[in-house]
Design a protein around this nucleic acid. Structure first.
Lengths: 162, 162
DNA sequence: ACAGTATATGAACAAACGTTCAGAACAATC
DNA sequence: GATTGTTCTGAACGTTTGTTCATATACTGT
């Protein structure tokens, strides 16, 4: 709390004008992040076909995560430091988001566009794979964001192809 | 340290007979884990062809991570709490392991078995995807380990296919 | 100018932290 | 059974932790 206060340029006690305690501050941050993520995807209005929608999702997810690297990092590192009820809230939002990906996969599977052995596992696999970008991507590195999006989309596309 | 001591059934001070300080204890744990991981893979003697080797790697990685879930969790959660030099050591070992996967991909790429846009990114993508299993897999769940291995291998195989 | 509200300080609190150390308990050796 | 070396305890240390609160400062509308 003292570190956060210093970063904001304030004394530690002043933070308690804005949050009842530390865990609430964290859970608010994580909830805001997840809300923003879901809202941003829902507002993206991706194209109609399952393949195009999956393409959109891959690029959206990578771009959003890189644009919110700190929040993503917190979400995955500090989630376990939440109490059970707060944990459940954030995990629920995460599942909401994952379900949007699974819906795409299911639709594509039903329409014969995809051939995934298990849509739930494919969802988890794709999300984990995309999240991995944040661990190694550095701005100004060998590949730009667009190139990374292309490469990952190529792998995802083939992974779920018939 | 007091929690660890209690778990072992000892007083906190007694731990300092075995480790000079907390960070050394952590880095020793992580180094042992990585050493064991690399040694286990090197001892696995996978088959000759790139496709078969990649198959072996996918199943090996999933199985090993599930058998060492606690150590894997620590490796990814506590890595950032290491000092720069210790961090570099563990990261180096991790890269050693990742390079073994990339070697398979390069060999398969050269031989025309795989068609990955970028072997480095494919390495990171596959590792991240496989690591994800630990976040959701529960013993006695819907799918057994063998089934999970089959499903993930199917996705990886297609993702890198020509 | 003044009252009222919102915002900040900085000192204090108890608890938890990593770590140290004198001494007790234990085990092995002669 | 005394000696020596190893292992552990339990209390203590100095810091850091999250949080509270009396008090001060800054802002807003009349």
């Amino acid at each position: 709390m003292r570190q956060i206060a210093a970063e904001v340029g304030v004394q530690a006690g002043a933070l308690y004008l804005y949050t009842p305690d530390k865990e609430t501050m964290l859970v608010d941050l994580l909830r805001d992040h997840m809300d923003e993520l879901i809202k941003a995807w829902d507002a993206a209005e991706p194209p109609a076909g399952p393949v195009e929608r999956l393409d959109s999702f891959v690029r959206f997810h990578i771009a959003f995560n890189l644009d919110h690297a700190d929040a993503v990092f917190l979400s995955y590192m500090e989630l376990r430091n939440l109490g059970p009820e707060n944990f459940a809230v954030i995990e629920g939002l995460r599942r909401d988001y994952e379900n949007r990906l699974e819906s795409i996969l299911k639709a594509g599977q039903g329409g014969g566009f995809f051939a995934v052995p298990d849509t739930k596992l494919a969802t988890m696999a794709i999300i984990a794979m995309l999240n991995g970008v944040n661990t190694w991507y550095r701005e100004g590195g060998r590949l730009g964001r667009a190139a990374v999006g292309d490469i990952y989309w190529d792998m995802v596309r083939k992974a779920v192809a018939v």
